[in-house]
């Protein structure tokens, strides 16, 4: 069990990649605090985990709220006395060409995707500083590196996550806290359903490994970064895209 006795917080844990991360972490021995605006979703997941002998706590929280972030940290410390791992996974899409994108579509995506990373990272720093250890893992995206038509807001927020990851890694390294990011490509989740239906599997044919990612493909890499095997890695972005982001193939 690679995360035995560790305590992890996962935002956006009710579905998709976040759900896979929470399940994987619990299977590896961690107590998992799962947050989402979807209260029923996280409660259902927490019950699933505990019914299988794992430890889980479900909390409704909006990552845009600094108060909610503080409440999650306080509840985690109250229930588990520590925070070892913070996975900033919560994210939304509002895909429009820039010319059609309303200010709210822009701001909501930036506030949830990037603002949420700031809010939760800020709040876990104190307990991690006191413990002289911790791992913050941010879920970015291949779009944050390559861009994407119709996804200027999403791509910008994910690019921001990558830069934030590097900056925070520099700030916290001296105190034994690592900060890394994972940048998934196309993952089989509800969030990518629209894009996949729109492209009618054209994207799939562009993926060298010939398939979309399963959420578990991403969760396994997050698990690595959360484990002691990644103790000497910080400020890095691991792209998990099946080769989608690679250059021309001939």
């Amino acid at each position: 069990m690679r995360l035995k006795d560790k305590v992890a917080v996962v935002t956006g844990g009710a579905q998709g990649i976040g759900r896979a991360i929470a399940v994987t972490f619990a299977q590896e021995g961690a107590a998992v605090v799962i947050t989402d605006v979807n209260k029923e979703g996280v409660e259902t997941l927490a019950q699933e985990i505990t019914s299988q002998g794992g430890r889980a706590l479900a909390l409704e929280a909006d990552v845009r709220s600094e108060d909610d972030a503080q409440k999650v940290v306080d509840a985690t410390l109250k229930n588990f006395q520590r925070i070892d791992i913070m996975v900033n996974n919560a994210g939304i899409v509002r895909d429009y060409l820039v010319v059609s994108m309303k200010p709210k579509d822009w701001q909501d995506v930036v506030d949830v995707n990037l603002g949420g990373v700031y809010n939760f990272s800020k709040k876990v720093i104190r307990p991690m500083l006191m413990a002289r250890s911790g791992k913050i893992i941010n879920i970015a995206s291949l779009a944050g590196i390559t861009g994407g038509r119709g996804q200027a807001n999403y791509a910008a927020s994910k690019a921001g996550i990558i830069a934030f990851t590097r900056a925070l890694a520099l700030e916290l390294a001296a105190k034994g806290i690592t900060v890394n990011a994972v940048a998934p490509g196309m993952v089989l989740t509800q969030m990518s359903e629209r894009v996949r239906s729109f492209t009618q599997d054209k994207v799939k044919s562009l993926i060298p490994l010939g398939r979309y990612a399963q959420p578990e493909d991403i969760a396994k890499v997050v698990l690595f970064l959360a484990s002691p095997d990644a103790d000497y890695i910080t400020g890095q972005v691991i792209v998990v895209d099946g080769g989608l982001g690679l250059g021309p193939r001939w």
Partner: peptide
């Protein structure tokens, strides 16, 4: 001491 140290000191 560096910036992060000041924060650490305040917490402690």
């Amino acid at each position: 001491a560096e910036s992060i140290d000041f924060l650490d000191i305040v917490f402690r």
